[in-house]
Amino acid sequence: MSNRSVVLLILLTGLLLVITGCGRQKAEDMIKDTIGGLIEAENEAISNAAIERRMYGEEDDSVQVMSSEWPKEIPGEYVAFDYGSHIQTVQHRDDGNWTILYTATMAEIENYEKDLAKAGWVNDDNYYDTPSMLSYDLGKRNTSVSIGDPDLDLHFVTIYLDNNDDMQDNKALLEEELEFTTGDASHVVGVKIPDRYPHDFCPLYEPSEVNIAMESEDDEFIGYTIGLLSMDELEKVKGFYVGLNPQETNDMGMLAVYIFEAENGTDYASVTVVENQDEGEKEFLTAVTISVSTSK
């Protein structure tokens, strides 16, 4: 029901009370009752619409529709949403993650955030940072809350429980090399350092784990992009690249960029070293991104 309809009904109610000679206090009470009834009707309409918008049907083979709201199979570390009206719970067959749908007020959603914080979950503002999307981490697990219908009193809420480590998922996806072309250039992406990578020109920091490796080539140049993750402290990694005598250095504290140029005046490399700012348990302390361009 639109705001215009609500206002019109309130005005008509007030006019009827004047015509029928009701007292002022009685008129105010009846108007309040009318407003309350309209709000309840609107919320009920939202709830019914949310049920109609259920994300998954029984015929959807990608998920298993669960009969219970919060199945016992959900790991105990996750915090149950004890608010609002439950709509549907499904488990995704491909990764074992969960999606749970509700309708709830913003106050109820804020209470759930308090429940998460009390249970030790950390608000991950670096990953999601919008009023309609919340993200909380606990080790390798993630709880994300998507809030629909932001302009209404009652919201359509989607809670997604991710039981996997995204970084490891990405690595698994890249175990097999991906080859593609853009324009006149060809590219190979994976997690294996390319055989032609120029280690002497721009050494890779050790110990570290390769998160991504990309080799690109056209008629004139060969380019490399390497992503490394290390459990060594930021300053130690910085010291390694400073010791290689870069031509340019830009150190901004928790992030530093080093530029290397070859004697031929054509080949160059940039190394970005950044500290992991995530709170709680960390899978790496320092990330290194290397970009190299060499001429043929």
Rank of each mutant, 00 (worst) to 15 (best):
N3M: 08
R4E: 11
L9K: 14
I10Q: 00
L12H: 02
L16E: 01
I19T: 06
T20W: 11
G21K: 12
G21I: 03
C22Q: 12
Q25G: 04
E28R: 09
I31A: 05
D33P: 00
A41F: 05
I46V: 14
N48K: 10
A50T: 05
R54V: 03
R54M: 08
E58I: 06
E59S: 12
D60S: 06
V65L: 13
V65Y: 01
M66Q: 14
M66Y: 08
M66C: 12
S68K: 14
E69H: 05
E69R: 14
K72V: 14
E73R: 13
G76T: 13
E77M: 15
S85N: 14
H86L: 02
T89V: 00
T89R: 03
V90N: 02
R93N: 09
G96T: 11
W98M: 07
I100W: 13
I100H: 05
T103Y: 06
T103F: 08
A107L: 07
E108W: 00
N111P: 02
D115R: 00
K118S: 02
A119W: 04
N126T: 09
Y128H: 15
Y128T: 15
Y128L: 12
T130K: 13
P131V: 09
M133F: 13
M133E: 15
L134V: 02
S135Y: 03
G139D: 04
L154I: 14
H155L: 08
F156N: 09
I159Q: 02
D169L: 15
E175W: 08
E175Y: 13
E176H: 07
E177N: 13
E177W: 04
L178M: 08
F180M: 07
T181E: 10
D184N: 11
D184W: 00
D184V: 00
V188F: 03
G190I: 06
G190T: 11
G190K: 08
K192G: 09
P198E: 04
D200L: 08
D200N: 15
S208L: 11
S208G: 13
S208C: 06
I212V: 10
M214Y: 00
I226A: 04
S230V: 01
S230P: 05
M231I: 00
M231C: 01
G243S: 03
G243A: 01
L244I: 01
N245R: 13
Q247R: 15
T249G: 06
N250W: 12
D251G: 07
G253D: 12
A256I: 07
I259C: 15
F260P: 06
E261Y: 05
T266W: 10
D267N: 15
Y268P: 06
Y268W: 10
V273T: 04
G280T: 02
E281F: 02
E283I: 04
V288W: 01
V288K: 03
T289W: 06
S291R: 06
T294L: 01
